[in-house]
Amino acid sequence: MKILVGVKRVIDAYVKVRVKSDHTGVETQNVKMSMNPFDEIAVEEGVRLREAGTADELIAVSIGPDQAQETIRTALAMGADRGIHVVADGRVEPLAIAKIFKELIARENPDVVILGKQAIDDDNNQVGQMLAALMGWSQGTFASKIELGAGQAKVTREIDGGLETLDLKLPAVLTTDLRLNEPRYASLPNIMKAKKKEIAKLTADELGVDTAPRVEILKVTEPPARQAGVKVESAAELVEKLKNEAKVI
């Protein structure tokens, strides 16, 4: 079984994001970048499946600028076998990413694609679902448990009020939730091995995918600063304020 995992280079989860002074986006120059945390979980799941003998090969894919190669290399250091870097500068929208994955699937013929459920930079949560639709494949999103068998997968997903278990036919697109696993650290021996692993370089043009954005971003601004609260003397005053000032009841 062959597994494809998607890894995206995003601003590190612990960095305080700053809006650019011209309000065209957020500042990424001289900012610490890391692998999207949900994608780390996807890589870990793939590595575990390969270590368990369920999968034979794990391929890490990233779509982005030259620096995205470092994100792929991190996935290789975690245990992925090889990487594919689709070089793309600028903003690439979820539908274009899904189309690129569709073309890569045609070339690599994987049985399963595992993606993070969303990237923490744009929080779109769209690529997995779009890819499944484009391929006509089964989809198991927000997975908190994945069991792969011969030609099928059992996916437990977190939904409002509990857990839902799906039986899916392979091939399938799966997206990871936070509680699926705890990603490992890249060990020094694996980091050293990762240097020698192959990363193929492609462009969206070579794959025949138009990555021009369809959505125009008008302005990016910081959320408004939170105002100080007020203390009320009684429950009656609170109700009065909610009713007449906040107008929420």
Partner: peptide, 10 residues
């Protein structure tokens, strides 16, 4: 530096 960054991160 790419590998050094990965090691530093890990």
């Amino acid at each position: 530096s790419e590998m050094a960054n990965i090691l530093a991160e890990a």
